[in-house]
Simulated assay, not measured.
Amino acid sequence: MPPTAPPPTAAPTAAPAVELRGVRRRYGRGPAAVHALRGIDLTLPRGSFTAVTGPSGSGKTTLLQCAAGLDRPTSGSIRVAGTEISRMSERRLTALRRSRLGFVFQACNLLPALTVEDNVLLPMRLAGQRPDRRRAADVLARVGLADHAHRRPGRLSGGQQQRVALARALVTGPDVLFADEPTGALDTATAAEVLGLLRHAVDTLGTTVVMVTHDPVAAARADQILVLTGGTLTERLLPGTPQAGD
């Protein structure tokens, strides 16, 4: 009798881009303590676009900062691209942020003395990598600033500066891009351009984007909307994936 063939082995499943388990963040102690996060459980798949919204003081920015390793939770576990970061040393955490994570904030935080190209290349330099000017040219072309590489940020509009900040966040090919109110200081038309670029990063580059926003129009560009209230996830909305080119 021929030997029985072993059952097929299931293909390994990629680790989620971001995974939080029982994450709490408390500031202070005793009766005056502020409980910014109250036991967050969350799994975000790779190549997804998540918007986090909610009223002021709901814990949105604290959630983003903990997930990105910019703040440490009081308790709980955080994994980014399969790597546990909540108990990682500050040295290793800094190296991970520089090489595998991207950040875009409401304030662009560009260095005025550097050219646009050198601002974009800064994460590579900080990570100890050789600056790749071809890579910088590619990401600047993606955000529509190919002809602005040798200008200083002060010669650009606010929307152009935010696009430089986005190019800087993408230059290392991060696993996850964290954006905190990236359109908060922009007019409606310019905000739509930046949101379109974030959508493009997800759909074309496979980047995972986690965006904090108070703007329902911005949130609607995401694959899912998480609503935070009083440090607790209270709702998950699915606005539907926007059409390509929207």
Rank of each mutant, 00 (worst) to 15 (best):
L101Q: 11
P73S: 07
C66N: 10
I78E: 03
G59F: 11
T208G: 04
L42F: 13
L42A: 06
R199D: 08
N109D: 07
D187N: 03
A192H: 14
A95P: 10
A220M: 07
G245W: 02
F103S: 08
L233R: 14
R24F: 10
R134S: 10
P123N: 07
L166D: 06
I225F: 13
S75K: 12
V194C: 06
R72W: 14
V227H: 15
P131G: 00
V210D: 02
R135M: 05
I40H: 12
A169L: 12
I85V: 08
G196A: 05
R142C: 09
T74E: 03
A127L: 01
L111D: 04
T115P: 00
L37I: 07
G128R: 03
D41Q: 14
G76Y: 15
T83L: 06
A191K: 04
A189V: 11
L197S: 08
S77K: 13
Q224F: 08
A149N: 03
P12F: 02
T53F: 02
P123Q: 10
R221P: 04
L114A: 08
A51T: 00
S89F: 02
R87G: 12
T172E: 07
A192T: 09
A51N: 01
A32D: 10
S75A: 14
Q129T: 02
A107L: 05
A32K: 13
A244T: 10
T74Q: 09
D187E: 02
A169W: 14
T229E: 13
R155V: 05
V171G: 08
L64G: 00
G240K: 03
V176A: 01
S99V: 00
L96K: 13
R92M: 07
E193H: 15
H148P: 11
G159A: 05
L121S: 00
R38N: 12
G57K: 15
L228Y: 05
L121K: 01
E181I: 01
V202G: 04
L101E: 04
A15Q: 11
S157I: 07
F103M: 09
D118S: 03
R151V: 03
L121N: 00
D175A: 06
G240T: 01
G144I: 07
R24A: 06
R133F: 03
T9W: 13
G76P: 13
T183M: 01
